[in-house]
Computed example of a mutant assay.
Amino acid sequence: MPEDSGIGEEALNKAAEIGLSSQLDEVENLDVNVKAEPFKLVQGEVESVQIAGEGLVMQQNLRVEVMEMQINRVAINPLKAALGKIELTKPTAGKAWVVLTEVDINRAFNSEYIRAQIQSQKININGELKTVAPQQVDFRLSGEGKVTLNAKILLVENGETHQVAFTAVPRINAHGTTVTLENVTYCEGEEISPELTKALIAQTSEILNLNNFDLEGMSLRIKQLEVDTGKLTLQAEADVEKIPFAEN
Rank of each mutant, 00 (worst) to 15 (best):
M1W: 10
E3F: 12
D4W: 11
S5T: 13
I7K: 15
I7N: 12
L12D: 06
L12V: 08
L12P: 03
L20Y: 11
K35Q: 11
K35A: 10
K40Q: 14
E47V: 03
E47P: 03
V49Y: 00
A52H: 06
G53Y: 01
V57H: 00
M58R: 02
L62Q: 04
V66Q: 05
M67E: 05
Q70I: 02
N72Y: 09
N72F: 07
I76H: 01
P78F: 02
L79K: 03
A81G: 03
L83Y: 01
K85I: 07
T89V: 13
V98Q: 03
V99I: 13
D104L: 04
N106V: 05
N106L: 06
F109W: 12
N110L: 10
I114Q: 01
A116D: 15
Q119M: 13
Q121P: 01
Q121W: 07
K122D: 11
I123N: 02
N126D: 12
G127Y: 13
L129I: 05
L129G: 08
T131C: 07
Q135L: 13
D138C: 09
D138K: 15
F139Q: 10
G143N: 08
G143I: 14
E144F: 09
G145H: 06
G145I: 12
K146P: 00
K152C: 01
I153L: 02
L154N: 04
V156D: 03
G159R: 11
E160D: 15
H162C: 00
Q163P: 01
V164F: 05
V169K: 15
V169M: 06
N173P: 01
N173F: 03
N173H: 05
H175Q: 14
T177G: 15
T178R: 15
L181H: 09
T185I: 09
E188D: 14
E190R: 13
S193E: 07
S193Q: 10
P194Q: 10
E195S: 09
E195M: 08
A199T: 08
I201L: 11
A202G: 10
Q203N: 13
S205C: 06
N209V: 04
N211W: 08
N212K: 08
L215Q: 12
G217Y: 09
G217M: 08
M218I: 15
R221C: 04
I222Q: 05
I222P: 02
L225G: 02
G230Y: 04
G230S: 06
K231D: 03
Q235W: 14
Q235E: 15
Q235K: 12
E237S: 15
A238L: 13
A238N: 08
V240C: 05
V240D: 06
V240M: 07
V240E: 05
K242T: 07
A246M: 11
E247V: 12
E247M: 11
E247D: 14
